[in-house]
Amino acid sequence: MTFIIACASSKGGCGKSTLAVAIGGVYASNGSSVLLIDADTRRRLEDEWYNPKTVSSNISVISTRSEDIAKAVEAQRDKYDVIIIDVEGSANWGLAEAIKAADFCLVPSNVSFQDLRDAQRVYDHVESLNSESKRYRHCWIVWNRVPPAIRSKEMTATMEEAVANGLRVIGTVHERDAYKAMFSYQSTLDKLRAGNAVPSAAKAESEIARLITAMHDELQKKAA
């Protein structure tokens, strides 16, 4: 059965599309068929990133209006191993629908108090949805664009704040050129890694692989 992931945040610019592409790329390069549902009105995935000449044939992209996310998921379910929903950075219907459809909500958040507020809002919504719904949805924060070398006091305080507020953090995605390069070259991390085309691609791919493994571990724990 299809594993459905929502890159869910009401905050714009927190890295939802980048995370969706990075995760989709790693799944695809390991043999899974992946559908990216682009429900952002800017259609970044379909218009700016997806290029059938440079992207693996294991990956497909469709754009949909936010009000049609549920229908799109229903229509495509079971045709793919993984469906990743990317939404607009807004607390709109699309975000609510993506969360409702997902098995796993990943909430990317820059390490700032402002972003954390938005992340907490999504997290709280998923928690309340779980209490009312018959189906459980995982919801985890992903720290995004974390500098690899230096961590400021402000960042440390924000990370501590998240823990103090009971938010669950599944992983960290560092600031790396490779993530930007995925859009510049309309490609995925595995292709950017090949031949050391983008030096940070291998590290980026590894951290996304760890993130995916952590998601699988959490699913297994919950199922057990």
Binding site: M1, T2, F3, Y27, E205, H216
Partner: peptide, 19 residues
């Protein structure tokens, strides 16, 4: 920096009974 094994990166099978 090598990616993890392919097996651990295969998506899990999600049981989704009609609810």
């Amino acid at each position: 920096n090598e990616p993890m094994s392919r097996a651990s990166l295969r998506p899990p099978s999600i049981k989704r009974e009609p609810i």
